[in-house]
Design a binder for these strands. Structure first.
Lengths: 172, 172
DNA sequence: ACAAGATAGTTTCGTTTGAAACTGTTGCAA
DNA sequence: TTGCAACAGTTTCAAACGAAACTATCTTGT
């Protein structure tokens, strides 16, 4: 009997991997391209960064939130939020007031200056988003929405236990 | 006659923007969740970073490329590639040889050690990808592929002139 | 009522990042 | 040929990042 011939599928050739077909890679590149573009948009027009934009976005409705609330809603970590808030205090975009029931929590509100930015920036943001999905039909847009939601849920489930929820993000 | 009632669509209320429905935000969060997970995977198992993984991925076929080639194929900028290569030289994952026709270009090849990592890592990467898209049907996977391709093309077209092509990415 | 632990937020520290400046090499034009 | 722009890759620098340590406040159990 001849020795067992190692079959090709066993170990020899690992399925080839083309980076440009690899989903994590593609998501990363796409998210980066998009983030860079909008970051430059916000930066040149309003002098704010993406973390600051996110904070403006969640406070723009006039709500008053604590830093922790903001971190949860923006998927940024508390360090990032803390730093962004301190920048925004310097540039008079935000108001901080100690809560009286719990003095650990600081209640944050946008200043009129920030609200003005909000009013101007939201249409720009939506316009960019519209341009980005320009080539998609309404049905495709709905499908994309669907798929992203499901992928995010799956990614969260597969995420390292250290960050099971409230994932931090580079920018956007 | 009562005075004209300002219509809601005029100026008063800018279309509300919910971060969790905003595509750039969603892409950023998803890409980050995924990147973090795979980064930890590569880090704990092989002690390599994502830039290093990408370089291994493009050189894994046995090809010999220059740093510039790698930058183009991995969508990383040349600084990032340069740094990753220098790490890989230290850890004996890569071989650098000066080209004789053009001494500016260095020809890079993986060492057997890196090839062994490649052989082990590719199935892991594909397995993660498979798990991520677990809940998707084949048709949905094809649609996702389609949509991502089109979004990337659109995002490139809308990108700031500074980076019209060969976009750099944080990780993945 | 008070020690122990949880929670809110900030600061520190070492690492990573990208833009810009720099070094060295090649190709081209006068 | 030689001078200059383009190119490959590295280094520098200031900013941004995240983990972990820290401060301050609140909650809970005994």
């Amino acid at each position: 009997m001849p020795p067992v011939r190692r079959t090709r599928s066993a170990k020899a050739t690992p399925a080839a991997l083309h980076l440009t077909r690899f989903l994590p890679y593609r998501l990363s590149v796409l998210a980066n391209t998009v983030s860079h573009t909008v970051a430059k948009l916000y930066e040149t027009r309003f002098g704010i960064t993406i973390p600051e934009w996110r904070i403006i976005a969640v406070l723009g409705g006039g709500e008053t939130l604590s830093a922790g609330d903001i971190a949860r809603r923006t998927a940024m970590d508390k360090v990032q939020v803390s730093r962004a808030i301190s920048r925004m205090l310097d540039s008079a975009l935000i108001l901080r007031e100690s809560g009286d029931t719990d003095r650990r929590k600081a209640l944050l509100t946008l200043t009129p200056k920030a609200l003005a930015i909000y009013t101007e920036i939201v249409p720009m943001a939506l316009a960019y988003e519209a341009e980005l999905t320009d080539a998609l039909s309404d049905e495709e847009r709905a499908t994309l929405d669907q798929l992203l939601t499901r992928l995010q849920a799956r990614a969260d489930a597969l995420a390292t236990p250290a960050a099971p929820e409230g994932e931090e993000a580079v920018d956007a």
